[in-house]
Design a binder for these strands. Structure first.
Lengths: 353, 353
DNA sequence: CTGAAAGCGCTTACAG
DNA sequence: CTGAAAGCGCTTACAG
């Protein structure tokens, strides 16, 4: 590949001058010289070496996004948002599926640091485990010191999201809506108790109930994994428990979809016998049957704004903490409760009910 | 950030020696010296500068994956596969959502070239438009010359996939299965006629019919976009057309899901009145209702093998052309045909049928 | 086993 | 407006 040296030689100028024109530097160069350099660059199919430039700046126009799993539509949306904002600015996006594993996450961040990525954006909520993450934070601190932008899109062990939503308020609004529909016995599939974002949503559930003057029946709060399997298992746990309920509120959409699938298997009608609500509004939420009522998060916008904030920091500005609005997306999986609540313990599962 | 110079100074050795130990070079260094260097590196929180190393090698351990859209589960799966193979090898994955736009694709590849990415993997099929892509191929040729690995996971304007599936055979096997179920009037939602991979699947449809001794009713072959909207539009086109059919075979899953949704809207029972089949087996295909019968592509494995082939080339080997097997995944959306075929023209849409 | 030195391809004071 | 030179942080012949 042609280097700037060859471009300069072909154009008959110094490499300094060649650099000034090809790098679009704001520096006076005579029009004739400029034209000759541009010509030479075109002739030689010159493409600047971003590594050399990056070495000088100690930074390369690349942003790493840490996600739980890129095949999870939540994260795919966020990453796409980052890309939509980053791409016009000439930044490339590196996806890092950490599976919420601290070791993997650290290894990714170290790699990002080694290549002097301009920014790392955490799309996934961290686990509430500060001990595990000392090395991670060492890397992040070093990167920040070096001018890199670190942006969180979810609450994490060390603080709130930089660009995010009010998870607690969003969940409380869903609870309020279920109460408005007439529900009084609302179960909650809470996800993993160690996940920071799950905390916030559980807090929202409690607040929603409190706002309605209702108490929390702790037997109806179930912790599971944050995926479909957790939703199915959660339903089983509720049905074998001792408390009755007319609706199930879930801390995210996968949980709700798993619950929907398990209830269908058991022949329990949604929303006839029980209402189900999710949280996130991933694109598939509108395609389940019945379609899932959920809390819409502006996922793509979160990604976009995440990059915008990163760019602000790279420009020497301060991170602005941003809270984006959530919105209820009520669909077919919720309705006023049936006369009788779904019973817990004592009801045999799978018996065609 | 500490550089190797500082590590060398702290360890009391030359930077050459320091480099040999921190870069894990296969070069004799006395154990005592090695230990001192490692110690210094740890003390200084030394992380090697990948940009400096890359500048020397004219290559950085990064692989770019060109996809249509990372929020499309097909591509998310493939990217995850690439990441699963790339990550243990110390490579980072850059996602490029090109929206099948030649200009964007070229711009991404140029950026990848400028940062001397070790490899670019095309997950998306190209458009059959060699004119549009001259500049793209100039960049790719330059990268290849420079030792980068270019791998195609789908057929493209200039040739077959390097790591892919036999789209034609896969589609033919689905047609054979529909015929086995008793279908004789099979419609085909073909996707865009300019998309190379769509060609192959249409060819498979024709071959499957020919193998069964059936002719192709061209009135039942509909070209639309490659997404849900195309599926819905395709159904409308078929219903207002003049030919009858008992099943709809789709060139990919989004088309099939769009068809399913539209048929449900129209009150047409699947698979009672008409069978619907997809192609790809993206994860959501199992979650529609009825669950979608489709042709399973080993998407994640395609991504993984794509990186493995890239690594082979980077190691100085030759690209091995690999064809991965497809598999039928028959689910609830297909069944033997009803006595009467669905009629086209003359049936009023949306009239509760 | 160790080190001095060249060089990868750029940008940017500095001098003219 | 133009150019010579230093230097970013590494690796790697080459010499010892």
């Amino acid at each position: 590949m042609a280097s700037i040296t060859e471009v300069a030689r072909l154009a008959g100028v110094s490499i300094a001058t060649a650099s000034r024109v090809v790098s679009l530097a704001d520096y006076p160069v005579s029009p004739a010289t400029r034209a000759r350099v541009l010509d030479a660059a075109r002739t030689l199919d010159y493409v600047p070496n971003a590594l050399a430039r990056g070495l000088l700046k100690s930074q390369i126009p690349v942003v790493g996004v840490i996600v739980h799993d890129i095949t999870d539509p939540y994260f795919a949306e966020v990453v796409r948002g980052v890309e939509d904002a980053a791409s016009p600015a000439g930044y490339l996006v590196i996806t890092c599926s950490s599976e919420r594993d601290a070791v993997q996450e650290t290894s990714y961040v170290r790699l990002l640091r080694s290549m002097r990525a301009a920014s790392v954006i955490f799309a996934a909520s961290g686990l509430d485990d500060p001990g595990q993450t000392r090395e991670l934070h060492k890397h992040l601190a070093a990167m920040r010191l070096d001018g890199a932008a670190v942006v969180h899109l979810s609450p994490h062990a060390l603080g709130d999201a930089d660009v995010g939503v009010d998870n607690e308020a969003g969940m409380a609004s869903m609870v309020a809506e279920l109460v408005r529909l007439g529900h009084r016995q609302i179960a909650f599939l809470a996800g993993p108790s160690a996940l920071v974002v799950a905390h916030a949503r559980l807090a929202g559930f409690r607040r929603g109930l409190a706002d309605a003057g209702l108490g929390v029946d702790e037997r109806l709060v179930v912790h599971t994994s944050f995926d479909r399997d957790g939703g199915a298992l959660g339903v089983d746990a509720l049905l074998t428990g001792s408390a009755t309920f007319t609706s199930i509120c879930c801390a995210n959409d996968p949980l709700a979809m798993g619950a929907l699938a398990r209830l269908a298997e058991l022949g329990i009608d949604v929303p006839g016998a029980v209402s189900v609500a999710g949280f996130d509004d991933v694109p598939v939420a509108a395609m389940t049957s019945p379609a899932l009522s959920t809390v819409r998060l502006p996922l793509r916008e979160m990604g976009r704004r995440g990059f915008v904030e990163a760019a602000r920091v790279l420009d020497g500005g301060e991170l602005e903490r941003i809270v984006l609005p959530t919105e209820l997306a009520m669909r077919g999986s919720t309705a006023p409760p049936a006369i009788e609540a779904i019973a817990g313990r004592g009801v045999s599962l799978g018996a065609g009910r």
